[in-house]
């Protein structure tokens, strides 16, 4: 986003060359306005980031104390089955849950935007409501719903004379977690897409209708390409959110301790390393690596879409 504003500023430059004194004042004022942000940014982000990076280069032992370890923590992490297992699990989560969630969100956004749904405003609010429920509460609530003896699902199955499904077994807990996250964030992603849809000029639809395009064609060929940036945004958000999952495993751990291992998600692993194993240095290395994984995947996704866009533009006459 920063790269977008830069050329704009340059373009505005020449016009104001004559009034250079007032321009300088304005520049100074602009820096003054962004200063508070950068102060907090430096204090709350850059400094701790540097400190964590510094920590990750050391090894602390309960006996023997602190010693410089170079990149040993990173080397250890790259062959740590718990960390790699967590990253693998989250990758699976990403491949399965994110497409489902964003697909549903897109469908709902298109449906609401088509204007053919009665009570659209109320529905929009309803879909969005789960996002207003804090993640912790949502997980506790679903934990209750999943309960094997007292949960409503279990009771329905039992009253039908069937065995209650175990949503919290080691095999099924990942799926159950996907469901919680989907429930929570569909509405949020839908709102982003819906807002983007509202921004499309309606002349395009009129033109398409005159050309005899069906609603489906309009959605597929006009709406979706038009809100592509919004969709990419939700994809990136989802990638980040997925790799940062923490509340869900942390809370489900108490009701499904044998299903949620210490390294269930990388973030949960870093937490356990720091507070249970008392190994902050290794936890810092894990957090850094995880940040790296997220950065790489997000970058690859963005690169792919940019390339696709360029290709599309070239293919246009």
């Amino acid at each position: 986003m920063a790269s977008n504003t830069l050329p704009a500023a340059k373009a505005a430059g020449p016009r104001r060359r004559r009034a250079s004194a007032s321009r300088r004042t304005q520049t100074r004022a602009a820096y003054l306005f962004v200063l508070p942000f950068f102060l907090v940014f430096a204090a709350m982000l850059i400094v701790p980031l540097g400190y964590a990076g510094y920590l990750s280069l050391f090894k602390s032992q309960l006996i023997g104390g602190l010693s410089f370890a170079g990149l040993a923590n990173y080397a250890e992490a790259l062959s740590d089955p718990d960390f790699l297992g967590g990253v693998g699990r989250m990758s699976l989560f990403l491949l399965v849950q994110v497409p489902i969630m964003l697909g549903v969100a897109l469908f709902l956004a298109l449906a609401l935007d088509s204007g053919r749904v009665r009570g659209g405003k109320a529905l929009r609010l309803l879909y969005f409501m789960p996002y207003a429920v804090p993640g912790v509460v949502a997980t506790l609530m679903w934990g209750y719903l999943y309960g094997r003896d007292f949960g409503p699902f279990a009771q329905i199955f039992q009253s039908l004379g069937m065995g209650a499904p175990d949503f919290l077994s080691p095999q099924s807990v990942l799926g159950s977690m996907m469901n919680i996250v989907t429930w929570e964030f569909v509405g949020y992603n839908m709102i982003i897409m819906y807002a983007a849809l509202r921004g499309i000029p309606s002349e395009l639809y009129e033109a398409a209708e005159i050309d005899g395009a069906s609603q489906f064609r309009i959605a597929w060929n006009i709406k979706i390409p038009a809100i592509r940036p919004a969709i990419i945004l939700t994809v990136i958000f989802s990638i980040i959110g997925t790799f940062q999952l923490f509340n869900e495993p942390s809370l489900l751990d108490s009701i499904a301790p044998d299903a949620i291992t210490n390294g269930f998600t990388p973030n949960f692993y870093a937490y356990n390393l720091a507070f249970v194993n008392q190994d902050v240095n290794y936890a810092a290395a894990i957090a850094f690596l995880l940040g790296g994984v997220i950065a790489v995947i997000s970058y690859v996704v963005q690169l792919q879409t940019q390339r696709a866009e360029r290709k599309q533009r070239k293919s246009m006459p």
């Binding site: 709350m44 982000l45 850059i46 400094v47 701790p48 980031l49 540097g50 400190y51 964590a52 990076g53 920590l55 990750s56 602390s60 602190l66 990136i236 958000f237 990638i239 980040i240 940062q244 973030n267 870093a270 720091a274 507070f275 008392q278 902050v280 240095n281 936890a283 810092a284 894990i286 957090a287 850094f288 995880l290 940040g291 790296g292 997220i294 950065a295 995947i297 997000s298 970058y299």
Partner: peptide, 21 residues
């Protein structure tokens, strides 16, 4: 966004680290 997140992660680790060591 991604790098911000990476940074944010590290902040958490950093704060934690600060408290602990």
């Amino acid at each position: 966004k991604a790098s911000t997140t990476a940074a944010a992660m590290a902040v958490l680790a950093g704060i934690t680290g600060y408290m602990i060591t």
